[in-house]
Amino acid sequence: MTALLSVDDLRVETSTGRTLLDGVSWSLDAGGRLGIVGESGSGKSLTALAVLGLLPEGMRATGRVLLDGTDLLTLPPRALGRVRGAQVAMVFQEPLTALDPLMTVGRQITGPLRLHRGLRGSAARDEAARLARLVHLTDTERILRSYPWQLSGGQRQRVALAMALACEPRVLLADEPTTALDVTVQAEVLDLLDDLVDRTGVALAFVSHDLPVVARVARDLVVMRDGRVVERTTVADALAGGEAAYTRDLVAAARAVTGLPTPTRTAPEDAR
């Protein structure tokens, strides 16, 4: 099976020669669900940025990032710009940074539709409304007329998802998309992502520090630490006991502090 997006021996170095990512390799099939998990400093977010050619000033990536056989790292900026958004879209932890505060949500969604898909006027508006419904935004009309700051965190993240999906990308890169959200809202957005992958067939790469969250949406798993890939496995195998000791530690830590304790395990004494 040929991968849709594959990262091959990706290295990122700073201008001072420090290695931030070292030989990172993974692949994502069409319609696949890949989770990239690691703690702070593991390089998981940097990997996502490197794939999109969005590395901060002064960092250099080597290796290969193949999208359908095309190496994105060697692509000139203009061509890369067309790939970004149209073929590979991204959602971030804080959707406010991705949204223009001075533009209504409706115009922000129709912008890429005009640019990449040539939709105009009512066609663009209809498509924007369809996208808003796709991400389960209720009261669509009002939301499309609102400005980002008038929306709740969960609504903003749905809008960001609608924008990401506007050009029917083949790959969706999600970097901690639910970390800033409340638990109940997080659960809704995870359900939505799950549903979007099923319905649109977009391939999902989900980056997070939170293993239970990753396990909720991903099938394949890349475990990262200190800029390297510790293990490539599946979520099911990792939970059953990963190959690498670090993966097992991560699973054990996640079991110890996240998720609900079963009352029999902790049994706090009754207060009275």
Binding site: G38, S45, L46, E176, D226
Partner: peptide, 11 residues
Amino acid sequence: MTDLTTAVPAA
């Protein structure tokens, strides 16, 4: 974007 600024591999 949590770990962009702390992306220094600190062993």
